Simulated scan of single mutants.
Amino acid sequence: MGRIVYACSSQQLNEWSYAFDWPESPIEPLPIQAIIRHVEVDGPAESLIEEVKQMHIENFQRKNT
């Protein structure tokens, strides 16, 4: 497997969920390094954090209105 690149972490999503009082995810928030070893990992992409956060907010609002 090659390099893994991600925009935001499950930890960040959990922090946003807690801050906005969203329901807890049924998925265990594991860092990618706990899933796969010996690969190059780049992330989170600091320049995309606010954009990704806004996408999660809009998705949650769309599902719950």
Rank of each mutant, 00 (worst) to 15 (best):
Trp16Pro: 00
Met55Asp: 13
Glu46Lys: 09
Gly43Gln: 12
Ala7Glu: 08
Ser47Lys: 08
Thr65Cys: 04
Asp21Arg: 05
Ile27Pro: 00
Tyr18Glu: 13
Asn14Leu: 06
Ala45Asn: 09
Pro23Tyr: 12
Ile27Trp: 06
Gln54Cys: 07
Gln54His: 11
Thr65Val: 12
Gln33Cys: 09
Trp22Ile: 01
Asn59Lys: 12
Ala34Gly: 07
Ala45Trp: 14
Ile57Asn: 02
Pro31Gly: 04
Val39Ser: 01
Gln11Arg: 11
Met1Cys: 00
Pro44Phe: 01
Ile36Glu: 10
Ile32Val: 15
Leu13Gly: 00
Ile27Val: 11
Asn59Arg: 08
Glu50Phe: 12
Gln11Gly: 03
Ala7Val: 08
His56Ser: 13
Ser10Met: 02
Asp21Gln: 08
Glu24Trp: 02
Glu40Ile: 08
Ser25Lys: 08
Gly2Ile: 11
Lys63Met: 15
Asp21Ala: 15
Lys63Pro: 03
Leu48Asp: 05
Trp22Val: 00
Ala7Lys: 03
Val52Thr: 09
Lys63Phe: 08
Val5Gly: 01
Gln12Lys: 06
Met1His: 10
Leu48His: 03
Ile49Gly: 01
Asn59Ala: 13
Leu48Met: 10
Glu24Val: 05
Tyr18Ile: 04
Trp16Arg: 02
Cys8Gly: 09
Leu30Arg: 15
Ile4Asn: 01
Ser47Val: 13
Pro26Asp: 06
Ile32Met: 02
Ser10Thr: 05
Arg3Ala: 13
Ser9Leu: 02
Val39Phe: 03
Gln61Ile: 04
Glu50Ala: 04
Asn64Gln: 09
Cys8Tyr: 00
Val5Asp: 05
Leu13His: 01
Gln61Ala: 11
Pro23Trp: 15
Ile57Cys: 02
Glu46Gln: 09
Phe20Thr: 05
Asp42Lys: 06
Ala19Gly: 09
Ala19Tyr: 05
Asn14Met: 08
Arg3Ile: 12
Glu28Ser: 14
Glu24Gly: 09
Ala19Gln: 12
Asn64Ile: 08
Lys63Arg: 14
Gln33Ile: 13
Gln54Val: 05
Lys63Ile: 14
Cys8Thr: 03
Val52Ile: 15
Arg37Lys: 12
Thr65Glu: 04
Phe20Val: 04
Ile36Asn: 09
Pro44Met: 04
Glu40Asn: 12
Asn64Lys: 06
Asp21Pro: 03
Val52Asn: 10
Arg37Leu: 10
Ile57Trp: 15
Ala45Ile: 15
Arg62Met: 07
Gln33Phe: 12
Tyr18Met: 07
Val52Tyr: 04
Met55Leu: 15
Gln33Val: 13
Glu40Tyr: 10
Glu58Thr: 13
Glu28Trp: 09
Glu51Pro: 02
Glu24His: 03
Met55Ile: 14
His38Arg: 11
Met1Gly: 08
Gly2Pro: 12
Ser10Pro: 07
